[in-house]
């Protein structure tokens, strides 16, 4: 177990190294820090002097090492626009995005399992065919279209849900303010979570359905029937557990990917999270903030994947984590 953990941590570090290289390359090539610092009116000699002083004429390796060293100490540069450390800016926006992703994840889990299981058990009913048809459409409709359509119907036409912002928040600790403590907060997070969930939901339904159908054909399911086990137990104990094992791995990756999809969702719903912030940073060519965003998102991605792999190892009895480390 410990050996496996160490192995996974090393893999995660390697991935973070690559991400930081990419981040640094962007930093190095996008925008001119001098223009941001001193403006247009300074002579070329002064600029060269400043470049030397800032270390911008050092070799790529030296500059990267300085960048990585700072990053390890939590210094990802200073945002040009906010005049604050980029990491602080992002961390303030992080809770909003995380709550949105959490809401979407809950919706995905809560819907895809029962729907996937139902369509696998009864593949030929009208309801199943309808669901599968909708899921094909769902896969191909872009998220901003879903989002705009939802705003139009549920906010503009019916006025059931607010269409932008986070509403009433309750402070938890540090920069974390939560949507889940007030009715108004719940109302505000509804539409954005559903919109975000709608990207992954069809994929999950189809994945669970396909896995479940395969498992239902297996010998052990036939054997469970031959033992006279009740149908609900066959479906939800014998079949579902085997179905979800491969889904956990894929699902973990997809939930990591969802953080990236928040850019569009947050922008449409004016959700004050880091995706919305990222798009603004791109518009303002706020390079340190862009790079910091990439690194933070990459970090979240790596951490979720590692955790998902560990969970997989813990719930699957045939995976021996102790042996996998060797």
């Amino acid at each position: 177990m410990f050996a496996y953990l160490v192995k996974r941590v090393f893999q995660a570090i390697a991935v973070m190294f690559v991400i930081s290289l990419i981040g640094f390359a962007i930093q190095d090539n996008l925008g001119d820090p001098l223009r941001e610092l001193v403006g247009q009116s300074v002579s070329e000699e002064v600029r060269q002097e400043l470049r030397d002083e800032l270390g911008l004429n050092d070799s790529f390796v030296t500059q990267y090492l300085r960048f990585a060293g700072n990053a390890l100490q939590g210094d990802l540069g200073t945002s040009y626009f906010f005049k604050e450390p980029a990491l602080d800016v992002i961390l303030k926006k992080l809770p909003a995005t995380m709550e949105l992703v959490f809401g979407a994840t809950i919706i995905i889990i809560g819907l895809s399992i029962p729907v996937g299981v139902y369509t696998a058990i009864y593949p030929n009913t009208i309801l199943s065919r309808l669901v599968m048809g909708i899921s094909i459409i769902g896969i191909s409709v872009p998220v901003f279209l879903t989002a705009i359509l939802m705003i139009f119907v549920f906010s503009v036409e019916y006025g059931w849900f607010p269409s932008y912002g986070r509403g009433d928040l309750v402070h938890v600790f540090g920069p974390w303010e939560t949507n889940f403590a007030t009715v108004d907060g719940w109302m505000h997070i509804m539409l954005p979570s559903i919109a975000l969930a709608s990207i992954m939901l069809p994929l999950f339904v189809r994945l669970i359905r396909a896995e479940m159908m395969e498992v239902l054909q297996s010998e052990y399911v036939k054997y469970a029937k031959a033992k006279g086990i009740r149908p609900w137990r066959i479906y939800f104990v014998h079949a579902l557990k085997n179905t979800l094992l491969p889904v956990i791995t894929v699902g973990g990756v997809q939930i990591g990917t969802m953080v990236a999809y928040t850019i569009l969702t947050e922008t449409v719903f004016q959700w004050p999270g880091m995706g919305f912030m990222f798009l603004e940073a791109v518009n303002r060519v706020d390079t340190p903030l862009i790079v910091a965003y990439l690194i933070v998102v990459g970090f979240i991605f790596v951490v979720t994947n590692t955790i998902v792999d560990l969970i997989y190892g813990l719930v699957n009895p045939t995976v021996n984590l102790a042996r996998m480390g060797a």
Binding site: K227, G228, V237
Partner: peptide
């Protein structure tokens, strides 16, 4: 009746038992 008054033994014990139970 199945498993109670009438029981069945399958061919391949490697795939008959449920791997996660």
């Amino acid at each position: 009746i199945r498993g109670n008054r009438m029981a069945m033994i399958f061919q391949d014990p490697m795939v008959t038992l449920n791997p996660v139970l």
